[in-house]
């Protein structure tokens, strides 16, 4: 008997869908090995664009700025999100709980360009000049909900029994947090931090609007290159970024699911 849950053509459609999903990325990777200076004319296989990319000072500077901003913003956003999640999930009789949840998730409710314009005007009004500081402040803010959601999910999926047991054994709130809660929710905290880091590294809209000399992030630098036209070096840089993203995504996945709940 034929399976009534199967739909003719649905599998082929899905296969084609996955091809469509990956083809553009594969095209960029393939073109990055083109020896020719013109990206669109294939003349042979070569690593030369990777060599020139890795010696490109401006690119390395942009990577450094992106990593600096993303690391600091991730640390701030994850700490703030963790504290908020502990109060909102574990706290009893928290005043303004619903409103506080909305406040924490506020950056998700508005288009990023609006937020970018808002901080741009704010920084110009208070006369903040330091480009790096501007980026760190803005990125920390919009990364908070991305760090918050996985941490909250982890806390909600976990009974408070162990924490209550620790409290019964006269552990102070800080010791309970350090020795019981944190190890248990570590995968959630890690997933949240990872997500915040990727969101910050990937950000274009805010970083571009706040861009000033000396604070060009990687996506903003790449945007500038794209504006000048497609080149094999740009393809090589893009391929390196794809590689970095894949390593990050796979690490995040493995580390998040390696510790199955023993609780």
């Amino acid at each position: 008997m034929r399976d009534v849950r199967r739909y003719p053509g649905a599998r082929i459609f899905t296969a084609l869908f996955f091809v469509w999903l990956y083809l553009p990325i594969l095209v960029v990777i393939a073109y990055s090995f083109n020896e020719n200076r013109l990206a669109s004319v294939w003349t042979g296989f070569s690593w030369r664009w990777y060599e020139s990319a890795l010696q490109n000072r401006a690119l390395l500077d942009a990577v450094k700025i992106s990593l600096t901003v993303a690391s600091i913003a991730t640390a701030i956003a994850t700490t703030v999100a963790l504290m908020a999640a502990l109060v909102l999930v574990r706290g009893r009789d928290v005043k303004l709980r619903r409103l506080s949840e909305t406040v924490v998730n506020l950056p998700l409710l508005l288009p990023e360009i609006v937020l970018a314009v808002a901080v741009l005007i704010l920084f110009s009004q208070i006369g903040l000049q330091n480009g790096l500081l501007k980026l760190v402040i803005a990125h920390s803010a919009f990364c908070i909900p991305f760090a918050f959601l996985p941490i909250r999910a982890r806390l909600q999926g976990m009974e408070a029994d162990f924490e209550e047991a620790a409290q019964d054994l006269y552990a102070s709130p800080w010791v309970t947090f350090r020795r019981v809660t944190l190890p248990l929710i570590a995968p959630g905290v890690f997933a949240g931090a990872m997500l915040a880091f990727v969101i910050s590294m990937d950000d274009f809209i805010t970083s571009n609007l706040l861009n000033s000399g000396g604070s060009t992030t990687l996506p903003v630098y790449i945007f500038g290159l794209i504006k000048q036209g497609t080149t094999p070096e740009l393809n090589a840089i893009s391929t390196l970024i794809v590689l970095g993203s894949l390593i990050l995504a796979t690490t995040a996945l493995v580390l998040t699911f390696r510790n199955p709940d023993r609780a």
């Binding site: 504290m83 908020a84 706290g91 928290v94 924490v104 506020l106 005007i121 908070i144």
Partner: peptide, 27 residues
Amino acid sequence: FRIWGLAPAWVIMALTLVLPIGIVVLV
């Protein structure tokens, strides 16, 4: 902790989002 645990999130969102969006409306 129910207050100071939430305070950073409130302060950051107020200063980098709510206040600036008010300024955008004024601008």
